[in-house]
Each structure stands twice: as C-alpha cells, then as structure tokens.
C-alpha cells in the first residue's frame, strides 16, 4: 500500500506518503496565498525523497476541509485528477480530524478550530484523537464561547480567539502525515472514509441583483 495524502484546506500546503505502516516522506509549507503554485512541486519533492514515482501510489487521501474555498479546491481537484489518471481510489478525510489525530489528546472532550475568515472559525468537538462527537460547523467564536468554555482547543483558529479558546494546544497547522496515518488506520480496520467532496459549510456568496438600477435622473 502506498497512500499519497494532501491537504490545502487551511494555510498549510501539506503532502505525505504512507506505506501502510509508517509515513515515509512529508512536506509542509504555510502560505495561504499560494496553494496552487506550491502543491504539485511539493508532491514531486515528497515522491523524490521517497525514491518513488507517482504511479506507485495505490490510493489518494485528500483533506476535505472545512476550509476557505479557493485553497480547499486545489487539493481536492488535484486528488480527483490523480485518481482519474492513475485509476486508484480517492478518499476524503475531514481536515479537523487530522488536527485532532495529531494532537494525541486521549482524555477529551476537546475542540479543534481553524480560521474560517470573516471573524468565524470552523470547529468540531472530539472525545479523543480519533472520535469526533460534534461538527464540523462554522461559527463566530463569541457565539460558541459557552459551549467550548474551559475545553482544550487545537489549531490556529483557536489561537486567534484567546477570549473564547482559553486552553490552546498543539499542533497549530494540519499535516498530511496525520491525515495519511489516520486514513491508513481506518482502512486497515475496514472502516469507511468520506467521499473526497468539499465541506464548504457556507452557501456561495451570491447576491441576487435587485431590480435593475434606474438610470434616468430624478
């Protein structure tokens, strides 16, 4: 088995290769504006580090967010297309689950939060590193303050709002290595993984134009 995992749902552009037992190569860069430019070179680098070619990959794992849409789509489109070209399955993993897994927290509850911009966070609630019990959802931190009060909080979205998230834990950013390990564990246990479709959680911003603007001077 050779899993190629990638995630572009957050400012991190992260890629990892997992051979079924362990992560054999990985790359993570944090640059919220250049997902499109950075991803393919990162895939190429990770494969070169492992001394492998893309056609050795037996499945692709992609972070499905939630995350700001433009970046999120880069990873999912890349994963979809690899699946098509290589004829291998493509699995989704919730990006927040990757952060929860990497936190290693076994005595929950705790939450994971990433930056949803517009003064909101994407967040989910966990019982332990492998078990999500609520979410994902998108909310204003102040609106969920009571719900998350006192709970450990993982991720860069938590660090942004210290008034709401008072016990911030590592890691800050998601790593594809964690996504790959989580997916490998689930697949080995015969578990199901979600479809590689994006978790937008918001409707597209689209204003229905009002009746056309009158141009005749009054």
């Amino acid at each position: 088995m050779l899993l190629l995992a990638l995630d572009t749902a957050t400012p991190a552009v992260t890629v990892a290769l997992h051979d079924g037992t362990t992560v054999i190569a990985a790359s993570s860069q944090v640059d919220a504006r250049r997902h499109g430019e950075l991803l393919l070179p990162a895939v190429d680098r990770v494969l070169a580090d492992a001394g492998l070619r893309l056609d050795a990959v037996t499945a692709v794992v992609a972070g499905i967010g939630p995350g700001p849409y433009t970046g999120l789509r880069v990873g999912l489109m890349t994963a979809d297309t690899f699946g098509l070209a290589l004829g291998v399955p493509v699995y989704g993993v919730c990006t927040l689950d990757g952060l929860a897994y990497a936190s290693g927290i076994e005595d929950g509850p705790f939450v994971v939060a990433t930056d949803a911009r517009r003064k909101e966070v994407y967040w989910a609630r966990y019982e332990n590193a492998r078990t999500r019990t609520g979410g994902p959802a998108v909310d204003r931190p102040a609106d969920i303050a009571a719900e998350v009060a006192g709970l450990p909080a993982v991720g860069a979205g938590a660090a942004l709002y210290p008034d709401t998230f008072t016990d911030v834990r590592a890691p800050e950013h998601v790593a594809a290595a964690a996504l790959a390990s989580l997916a490998a564990e689930k697949l080995a246990a015969g578990g199901e993984l979600p479809e590689p479709r994006p978790l937008y959680l918001r409707r597209p911003d689209a204003q229905v134009p009002k009746n056309y603007k009158v141009v005749t001077p009054k």
Partner: peptide
C-alpha cells in the same frame, strides 16, 4: 475569474504530472 481558473489549472497540472 481567479478562483475558477485555479480549478482548471490544478486539474491540468495534476493530469500532466500523473501522465
């Protein structure tokens, strides 16, 4: 459109690389 272009460019790069 920037976001729309990026979807096609991502697909094309992945396809070219994989093939």
């Amino acid at each position: 459109l920037a976001g729309a272009l990026l979807v096609g460019v991502s697909a094309a790069k992945a396809y070219a690389y994989a093939l």
